[in-house]
Structures are given as C-alpha cells and as structure tokens.
Design a protein around this nucleic acid. Structure first.
Lengths: 109, 109
DNA sequence: CCCAGTACCTTGTTATGCAAGGTACTGGCT
DNA sequence: AGCCAGTACCTTGCATAACAAGGTACTGGG
C-alpha cells in the first residue's frame, strides 16, 4: 500500500487528463485507451479504471460515443471530445502546468 | 466538482511527495507546512489534509515527531524524516519523474 | 473582556483507481 | 466437435485521501 500507493494516488486525475488529451488528437475506443496507456511507463492502468472514467466523462458532456462495427471482433464504442471537453482540457492543461512546476520547484533542492 | 476536481485529484499523493521533500530539507511543524504549501500556486491545502497525512506518515515510520515549546504560542510538533522516509522519498522521486514525463509526452501533441 | 491568531486534532463526505467478476463474439488448435 | 485465448464491453465492492467543518487550548492586543 506504500510502494504502489504513490503511483496510484498521483494517477488520480492525471489519467483523466491523459484520456482527454488522447481523444483530442483523435477518437479512440476504450480497450484501445487501456492498451496505449499501459504501454507508457508509469501509467499502467486497467479496464476497471477506463470504462467508469469514460462513463463519467460522457455523463459530464465532455465526450460523445459512437458505436462502430469491427471486422475482427465485437463492435467498438468510439469516443471523441465535445466542444465542452476541449474547453475542460484547456483548463486541465493550465492546472497541470501549475502543479507540475510547483512540485518540481519544491522537490528539486 | 469539475473545475476544482482536477486539482484535488492530482494533488492526491503529490502532497505527500512534497511534504517528504520539505522534511528532507529541514524539519517542519504541521501548521508551518500548511502555510508554506498554501503559498505555492496550485498546491493550496488545509489542515484537514496535512494533519491526517502526518499521522499516516508517522504510523508508516517515514517521519518522527518531537514536541518543542514556542515562545509565541502553543507547543509545536516538529517532524523529521527517518532513514526509511529518505528511502521512500527516493522511490517517489523516480515514480514522479516517470509519471511527469509520461504525461508531458502524451499531452504535448 | 472578547476576539483573532497560533497550533494541534477528528469526523464525515466524496471521489476514484483497481481487482475481480460477468457477458458475448471470433478464430485457431487439437 | 470442443475448448481456450483474444477482443471488447460492462459492473460491484474495497481502500484511500483531500477537504470542509468542527473542536480544544493558549496568547496577546484593542
């Protein structure tokens, strides 16, 4: 609960920020987000994190989903950012920069 | 719950990292930590965050407290890092660097 | 004499990462 | 035919931590 705790806690909110950014670049479906995030060192995540997150984002009106068939498996639910999602992403970018720089300053001494 | 949510969630764990770093530089008492952290843009925090955090750190053996009199008010509980605390701080530094760089990469496109 | 400041603490609410489990379809191996 | 791994969606329950709000106790100034 300690060795893993730090990563777990910091990821709170950071994951949401990352997902919004990825959806801003191009649309993704949930399973794809899990795989791409897990490939990044330090952001290992799971379906139990991403699917509820996507539901929250949809309920908040930040993303909109669209079912689409796949030739190689079950249908996929693609998500893209809404205008409100873009606005929120801008907000998060500012807050992330603030916090990141604050931490770097406090910690580098 | 959205405008403030991001900051709140990202701070989870980040605050612990900051406190450990500050205690590594020199000993601090709780009220002092609240004031110094609140002076930093983006890390605004409160006693309801810091005191429980210090208790957790003490129970985990990462910090050790020491009461000391003050000439200008109630006695203060000064905390300093234990050797185990220093070890944990090194760990957190590595994890923070990983996550910070991962987020910066994912987000800057 | 009260009120603001310093300094400690706790309780309850809320949010969210994650493990674990469930459904359903496809394709390959034996 | 039978089975298992992979793809893709989802939910429930647990543990954790930030924060608001409230409580205690001492000090010094108006």
């Amino acid at each position: 609960m300690n060795a893993n705790g730090f990563g777990t806690q910091v990821k709170r909110g950071v994951i949401e920020f990352c997902v919004l950014s990825m959806l801003n670049r191009r649309e993704h479906y949930g399973f794809e987000l899990v795989q791409e995030l897990s490939r990044v060192d330090g952001l290992l995540t799971s379906e139990g994190t991403i699917y509820p997150l996507l539901s929250r984002l949809r309920r908040a009106g930040l993303v909109s989903p669209e079912w689409r068939e796949s030739t190689s498996g079950p249908p996929r639910k693609y998500y893209r950012l809404t205008p409100e999602g873009e606005h929120t992403l801008d907000d998060y970018r500012r807050q992330w920069t603030l916090i990141r720089d604050a931490v770097n300053t406090l910690v580098s001494e």
